[in-house]
Design a protein around this nucleic acid. Sequence first.
DNA 1: ACTTGTTATGTTCGCGTTAACACGAGCGCT
DNA 2: AGCGCTCGTGTTAACGCGAACATAACAAGT
Lengths: 351, 351
Amino acid sequence: MATDNRTRSPRSRATRQWPSMADVAALAGVSSQTVSRVANNRQNVDSVTREKVLSAMQTLGYRPNTAARALVTGRFGALGVVSFDVSAHGNARTLGAIADAAREADFSVNFMGVRAQTEAAVRHAFQHLMLQSVDGIVLVESQMLDTPSLRLPPSMPVVVADGDTGHEYPHVDFDQAHGSRSVVSHLLGLGHRTVWHLAGPADSFAARRRAESWRRTLVDAGAPVPPVVHGDWSARSGYRAGLDLARRPEVTAVFAANDQMAMGLMRALHEAGRSVPGHVSVAGFDDIAEAAYLVPPLTTVHQDFEVVGKHCVALLLDQVEGRTDGARRRAVEPVLVVRSSTAPPRPGALA
Amino acid sequence: MATDNRTRSPRSRATRQWPSMADVAALAGVSSQTVSRVANNRQNVDSVTREKVLSAMQTLGYRPNTAARALVTGRFGALGVVSFDVSAHGNARTLGAIADAAREADFSVNFMGVRAQTEAAVRHAFQHLMLQSVDGIVLVESQMLDTPSLRLPPSMPVVVADGDTGHEYPHVDFDQAHGSRSVVSHLLGLGHRTVWHLAGPADSFAARRRAESWRRTLVDAGAPVPPVVHGDWSARSGYRAGLDLARRPEVTAVFAANDQMAMGLMRALHEAGRSVPGHVSVAGFDDIAEAAYLVPPLTTVHQDFEVVGKHCVALLLDQVEGRTDGARRRAVEPVLVVRSSTAPPRPGALA
DNA sequence: ACTTGTTATGTTCGCGTTAACACGAGCGCT
DNA sequence: AGCGCTCGTGTTAACGCGAACATAACAAGT
């Protein structure tokens, strides 16, 4: 199928560099089926025989051939992860957590990055993965695609992390609403009349949810809802937005949808002579490792990615192994971490 | 081998949910061998026959079974990547770049994270990967292991990225020496009497090389070599070190071995009332996305990870495909990016 | 004694694919 | 004509493994 017209491989055939079950069996003086049973830790093998086989495996350095096993069992012991840019903090953490959880379950992880935010690109990644070499796929759908409904090839277990809760697949994510609400409530609780929002890009599910929850929390508290300012997650965009916000004296509290933008924002405020948190309180989201060491240390929302990874793998294996009773949605609660970038508004402030 | 004593899989046998070559062959009215030839884009197939087969594939939704293919060819179309913490900026970038390059070459990437910095942990990761399901492995050896010489299972192609150049495997890395030298020369060129160094952890190869090159550059320039201050890459450690450095009036220029530490350092200097770059010039290494938006924008060293990824895959495939003529070491040159955190020393400074 | 079960082992077969070889048709050459 | 060649295609035999079934030995009931 692929555009593969390379000449033949140099190794004409699979050169027998690995011992097979037959070799182990011969050395141990048993049948290869007994070796298979030992390799798979079946219980119905005499302990003496098992020992013989194990030592034969040792001496030969036997390792089971996953391809042969997969061929006969129809299972691969591998999970696919499809993700956008892994250099983004959240995606990297999610991938790492999934990989850890997968290894825990004795699965390996097949990673595939996607550059374009199109359904076609995602589907292409799926197909590459699906050439039947994974048992299931976690889609870290941090960004919206060009099409509203994601239709992936059927008969492949899928779990969506971070993405659209709208479609049919089981879903794992942080409770963005909860996180946003805790930030906004914190700032209102300090006495700010309202809280501005520096949102992430419109094509990000997380950004949307954070913005929605910000708005709702303000409305519920009877606070005025200022216009949303949009960034693109980068410190650069936060800086740009900050130059604007710094000119408005009525801005006393800003909730940035991630820490990087909060960083850029703080730099812009600093340049404009507006101190943080003296003139303006700033809060972020993510709790990146550096957040505690910014000037000033950033109030933000901490997220436990390990839990997300565990849930992704658990939900995926539920499908792979045919369990249908499992949960279909899991939300992980993030927690507010209050540091020094937020404070009550100055008494004499315009707000 | 693994601790696998789970009960049997629900699917008793590989349920035939995918069409096989035989199905395609039957529909197209050819032998399955001809289907194989078409699937592998061999040239010796009549164009009419090829069309018939292709359309049969289309209608049945045929996809080759990689397990069966791997079983017979002894090749998997997969590369393994063993890496430490992917939430570290450099590791994530490297992984992403390798994945991109691998896909380019029609290989998938099997990712395996390692937590402990022991050879045992790395070897364990290798074995998990090696259960013969990858054709070669890239070890992103960003940190030193407990043993000096890494002895991995033989007959597995390996490329080491970022790590010890001492062992036998082909190696890809940034030219750390060049990067460091450019930073130190830049600072000396501005008129600083010497440059202090906030190094990374002693167990990091990159940190060591950056420190060595810093020292050599100072020596070569006839500048005094101040004691090395050690951090652990984190902003926290940079902050700690900064509290110390801020107390020494003779410190007018500091080269931090990465940007995160530079951030912590700048915060400490700020708190101590030492302005950057007024009192102290600070330079980092890595050029993380936020570097341009710090207060002040950070002078640092930019690295092109895409190139590293390409080289890793190229060197690995050289081995996998039996080419022995390829290079065994590739160094990618990073480039100095001068921003506002570095400036000439104040005229009246002690230095 | 006999069934009936249980446990440890061996035998056969097929998973889907590709390599190696075989074969026949068509070609150009002596 | 006869030879040797290339080209397109089919046939066969693995690759290493585990499921299914077969077998043997021996225990515990009737």
